[in-house]
């Protein structure tokens, strides 16, 4: 807040581009849907149908406006465009705790990000679908839950998922928490286990990222002295850039004064 007040732009929160990465079907889109709409849709690809979603995130001392880019399925055949991860200030790299191979994939994307992305990028590693391996009442009840809006577990597409006993549930886990945590610590990533289905851990991912974002750095680089110190989230909004959507005559008038 101090930074905002200082810049004389109190009502505008800081915009942060956040991208999701990870193997297909680990639950990236579901995590976004949970975070943005507090919703979960089992067994179908949640279509986002928007260029990106925006979601405010309030902390004690700051307000962030996430611009969340989902892969739109382009990860399926490794066809993500450079535009996708360009200028991302945060990334959530997702794997599926019931699929060991998905963590290996996640590691290779973390490497890519560290090699190519903005050097200040904040990366969180999220082991998703913990509901499948947590024998708690909120997560994977053996019978349909009484409140009715929660589908039975076999409604999700994840193979092998018919948990009915604790032992069976735990055997689904292929990535031990400690192992992923150790990797995350070593690579300097935030780490969470999440369930888009129950909501467990999802909001934390985004609030912990928000705390770690070097907000002053972003402010300084986007409101610089007329030159672009750093890459903007959306260059269209830059003072040196042209916003095509803005009323054209406005630009012209601005020239007159």
């Amino acid at each position: 807040m101090a930074a905002e007040a200082a810049s004389g732009n109190v009502d505008k929160s800081v915009q942060v581009k956040l991208v999701l990465l990870g193997e297909a079907a680990v639950g990236k889109s579901s995590i976004v849907l949970r975070f943005v709409s507090n919703d979960f849709q089992a067994n179908k690809e949640p279509t986002i149908g928007a260029a990106f979603l925006t979601q405010k995130c309030r902390l004690e001392d700051r307000v962030l406006r996430y611009e969340i880019w989902d892969t739109a399925g382009q990860e399926r055949f490794h066809s993500l465009a450079p535009m996708y991860y360009r200028n991302a200030q945060a990334a959530v790299v997702v794997y599926d705790v019931t699929k060991a191979a998905s963590l290996e994939k996640a590691k290779s994307w973390v490497k890519e990000l560290q090699r190519q992305a903005n050097p200040n990028i904040v990366i969180a590693l999220a082991g998703n679908k913990v509901d499948l391996v947590t024998p708690s009442s909120s997560a994977a009840p053996p019978t349909p839950s009484p409140d009715g809006d929660d589908e039975p577990d076999d409604a999700t597409a994840t193979p092998g998922e018919t948990p009915s006993a604790v032992a069976e549930v735990e055997s689904l886990r292929q990535v031990p928490r400690d192992e992923a945590q150790a990797y995350a610590t070593e690579a300097g990533l935030l780490f969470f286990e999440t369930s888009a289905k129950t909501g467990e851990g999802v909001v934390e991912v985004f609030t912990e990222i928000a705390k770690k974002i070097p907000i002053e750095h972003i402010l300084a680089s986007t409101r610089g002295s007329g030159r672009n110190g750093g890459p903007p989230g959306r260059p269209g909004g830059q003072q040196s850039g042209v916003n095509l959507d803005a009323n054209a005559t406005q630009a012209k008038n601005a020239c007159n004064c």
């Binding site: 986002i48 149908g49 739109a72 399925g73 382009q74 055949f77 450079p82």
Partner: peptide, 16 residues
């Protein structure tokens, strides 16, 4: 790339 992303967001499949 922007148009391709728009296509993907509306359900298009990409193979590169």
């Amino acid at each position: 790339q922007g148009y391709c992303r728009t296509c993907a967001v509306s359900g298009g499949t990409y193979i590169l």
